[in-house]
Design a protein around this nucleic acid. Structure first.
Length: 828
DNA sequence: AGCACGCCGACT
DNA sequence: GTCGGCGTGCTC
């Protein structure tokens, strides 16, 4: 009787199970049981080693600890506990869960994006040569022979290496044969990839610490003069600097490692390996050596008041208003309070100027985190953030996932920037929106900053969901730049020298250069991306399905829609006024650079776009050269806009304004206004106020007037009205659904079935497919539809579950089984 | 993402 | 009749 009840007790209550997130695409979290020896070691947020499938092992994160045995499956045990304390906080896991739900991906996919890869261990199958077995080459086929040959030489191979040897992904059958023939063995190896960085320090053997003994040694030195030289340089270094680094010594003495090894072999010098930080350890001091202007001071106070009232506050500050200075003051306050802050930037690799400013003023309190960092550096920062040592993290979107212990302040600079949204691999999350959610979770304050806020943020601010603080005055009372249009319908392009600039533009450039000022030429296209415009009435041919401008393709001599792929014959006459004066616009940054070099041969011209910026530092170098006025004319794409403040730019030239005003994007005006306003802001800083020259034909475009007045509110108001006219319910959500399939017809059919299914359930909210898109990407045809609806949590949840059902519905058709759906949620 | 299983065509 | 190519589905 006792035995029975003991068994029952054990089976019912003493088994502990853990739900573990593994870095895989899994719809449901899987459960493992915890053997008794690990009971004390587990906690939510601790990594455990688990087996998944036949042999593969992963480091997963414990999400939940419970006693519920999963029904109908045999539960495997966890193999190991990898951490003695959680590597992240439960709030982080809540953020992961929210992201996976809101952006419709799995938590495993969030984990892949969130953890530095050194924390995401997985096993790799390693094939080892069996030395006890004679290879009988007779019994092997060609592939088996190749592998066994390689094994005999290398004795150990990874699966990926075998794939390379055989030039095929199908290597398992071969390995299986080799195992059967007892030529090799396999095992799973967990790869711990992080290695602490060490530096080698050198000490003198302690017996020579006695001066006399040392003197005797040096004086009685007979052979090996190089070793003596090295020893003497060592003694000198030690006396002047204290601890001596091996690398420093060898460099200073210009000696080879062999000479050094000789001294070590004689036991004169001793080697010590010391662990060091990869991250620079700057002194933790402030250097607030500036004073805020009255306007900035007021803004700062308003922000602090707003923080009492709102979870998030928008700082709408014109370019050059010195938002960064306000940020620094706020960060200083939070650092002094002893809490952590996060400073998000769209593409941090491109914004070394802000990094420099923060480092200058806040010193070692600031750490930087972005994708160009290597994984070891990221892991070290991870731990420093968790321990609370680092107070401010300046980072790109992935910095949001760092394990902050007491985060109270998040700055999202340039909040309108599209690169906050991760596009390609899931999770397709917007770091701005996720950060606002996360701030709510941990009770942190959010400051959104922009000169050209996104419409949805501005809407939230004007409807008092967020606080709103304006900084509408440039620092030092500078005026905003004058925007001058140069009407290309009146000003013929300079036919002799330049196909790109009108003589008037060239004169303006020359005048600016003569004043010793630099110039930025902004063209939003690399290479060649032409479109067509009527020289008389500035009509631009657009796709009837998609309402985006058509691109001329020389190869087919037709007009192509880059959205839906449909083609149109080349127009001979204008579809609006009937004139035959249609112009092909045809230049990108390269062309402009070349052209400027001929027009201004004495000036230094440089180009900044993704083609000309290759390495990690070439961008920095270019900016430095420009700052030091080694470059007079800088031609660039959007890249020149991002986070750059130059003091000596007299003018900005936009040679092809029409291409911006008629963007290939359905949110045409929003992007156009933002771009032109942002790029205009680069003109005129410390010096007299700047000039902007826009060459264009469509001079009556309604945005121009608003841009000239820098009137964001006017732009915003008309944009809202327009959206209502086009049935975009203002401030709703869009869900973008892509179907892809190797077969264009199947992809299209899948999308049609999908859309019909959604329409049945949500006829009132869904206006789709709004943009029938067919793209051919890597042999896969993609169709897209956009679901737009009023923002409302219940509706969003309902639509998402309808989407899931619709996807299942589509995949039930045998010929559509191989359709891949991707879903993407965004504010509109 | 791996890895197994199972269906179908090519070949002893 | 078997081998192996590849598509399909599951992983606690």
């Amino acid at each position: 009787m006792h035995t029975n009840s003991a068994v029952l007790f054990n089976e019912n209550t003493s088994f502990t199970y853990v739900d573990v997130i593994v870095p895989l695409y899994l719809k449901n979290t899987l459960t493992w049981f915890v053997p008794s020896q690990f009971h004390n070691g587990i906690a939510v947020g601790v990594r455990v080693e688990v087996q998944i499938g036949k042999s593969r092992r992963y480091a997963g994160i414990i999400k939940k600890i419970h006693q519920d045995k999963p029904a109908n499956i045999e539960v495997k045990p966890i193999l190991n506990v990898l951490d003695d304390r959680p590597i992240l906080h439960e709030d982080q896991l809540k953020l992961w869960a929210w992201i996976s739900k809101y952006y419709m991906c799995t938590e495993g996919e969030v984990m892949i994006a969130a953890l530095p890869s050194h924390l995401k261990l997985s096993s790799e199958t390693v094939v080892v040569f069996n030395p006890d077995h004679e290879v009988d080459t007779q019994t092997l086929n060609e592939k088996e022979y190749l592998v066994s040959e390689a094994l005999e030489i290398r004795s150990e191979l990874k699966i990926s290496e075998i794939q390379k040897i055989l030039d095929s992904n199908h290597v398992y059958p071969v390995i299986k044969q080799l195992i059967d023939k007892r030529i090799c063995l396999v095992f799973e190896q967990m790869n711990e990839t992080y290695k602490a960085k060490t530096e080698t320090y050198i000490h003198l053997n302690s017996i020579y610490h006695n001066e006399e003994v040392l003197e005797t040694l040096v004086n009685s030195w007979s052979k090996a003069p190089k070793q003596l030289d090295l020893l003497l340089s060592f003694l000198h270094l030690q006396r002047t600097q204290g601890d001596v680094l091996k690398s420093a010594l060898l460099k200073k003495a210009n000696a080879s490692p062999a000479v050094f090894d000789g001294l070590v072999a004689k036991d004169i010098l001793k080697v010590e390996k010391r662990q060091v930080d990869r991250l620079p350890n700057l002194p933790k001091e402030f250097n607030i050596n500036f004073r805020l202007s009255v306007a900035q001071e007021t803004a700062l106070m308003q922000i602090q008041e707003s923080f009492q009232q709102f979870p998030a506050t928008l700082l709408h500050g014109v370019t050059g208003s010195g938002k960064t200075m306000v940020y620094i003051k706020l960060l200083e306050q939070f650092i002094k309070k002893g809490v952590q802050s996060l400073f998000l930037l769209p593409e941090i690799a491109l914004t070394s100027q802000i990094i420099r400013k923060l480092r200058d003023h806040l010193g070692g309190h600031v750490a930087i985190y972005h994708s160009k960092f290597n994984m070891s550096e990221r892991l070290e920062l991870w731990h420093k953030v968790k321990s609370g040592e680092v107070k401010v993290v300046l980072g790109a979107r992935s910095a949001l996932f760092l394990p902050f212990s007491k985060l109270e302040f998040i700055i999202i600079d340039e909040e309108h920037d599209a690169s906050y949204k991760q596009q390609d691999p899931a999770p397709r999350y917007n770091a701005r929106d996720a950060a606002i959610f996360y701030a709510g979770l941990v009770n942190a304050k959010v400051l959104l900053g922009s000169a050209t806020p996104s419409l949805e943020t501005y809407y939230n601010a004007t409807t008092h969901k967020y606080g709103l603080v304006k900084l509408s005055e440039r620092f030092g009372n500078l005026e905003l730049p004058d925007i001058t249009t140069i009407d290309l319908k009146l000003e013929a392009l300079d036919a002799g020298q330049s196909q790109i600039f009108a003589p008037l533009t060239i004169d303006s450039i020359r005048a600016t250069l003569d004043k010793g000022r630099q110039i930025i030429i902004f063209q939003n296209r690399r290479g060649y991306s032409p479109y067509i415009i009527c020289n008389t009435c500035s009509w631009i041919p657009k796709c009837t399905n998609c309402d985006v401008s058509l691109n001329y393709h020389k190869s087919s001599n037709k007009l192509h829609c880059h959205y839906c792929g449909s083609t149109y014959p080349l127009y001979k006459t204008c579809g609006n006024c009937g004139n035959q004066d249609l112009l092909q616009k045809n230049f990108g940054t390269e062309h402009i650079e070349e052209n400027l070099e001929t027009v201004f041969p004495e000036q230094k011209v440089a180009r900044m776009d993704t083609d000309s910026i290759k390495g990690k530092h070439s961008h920095d170098t270019l900016i430095k050269q420009f700052e030091e006025h080694k470059i007079d004319l800088l031609v660039g794409t959007q890249m020149v806009v991002k986070g750059l403040d130059f003091d000596n730019v007299g003018a900005v030239v936009i040679p092809d304004g029409d291409s911006i005003l008629h963007f290939n994007d359905f949110r045409v005006n929003e992007r156009a206004f933002q771009l032109i306003e942002q790029v205009s802001g680069r003109a005129g800083r410390k010096n007299e106020h700047g000039q902007v020259f826009i060459q264009l034909r469509d001079t009556n475009h309604p945005l121009i007037e608003k841009l000239q007045k820098h009137d964001y509110d006017a732009f915003y108001n008309t944009e809202i009205q327009e959206r209502q006219m086009f049935f975009y319910p203002p401030f709703s959500r869009i869900i973008n659904v892509q179907s892809r399939h190797n077969d264009a017809f199947a992809s299209k059919e899948a999308m049609t079935i999908f859309c019909n299914f959604i329409r049945q359930q949500y006829p009132q909210f869904v206006f789709g497919p709004a943009q029938p898109v067919i793209n051919k990407v890597r042999n896969q045809y993609i169709f897209e539809c956009m679901l737009k609806f009023q923002k409302n949590r219940q509706i969003i949840d309902g639509i998402k579950s309808a989407i899931e059902t619709a996807v299942v519905e589509v995949l039930n058709h045998p010929h559509l089984k191989r359709t891949i759906f991707t879903v993407d949620v965004d504010p509109l």
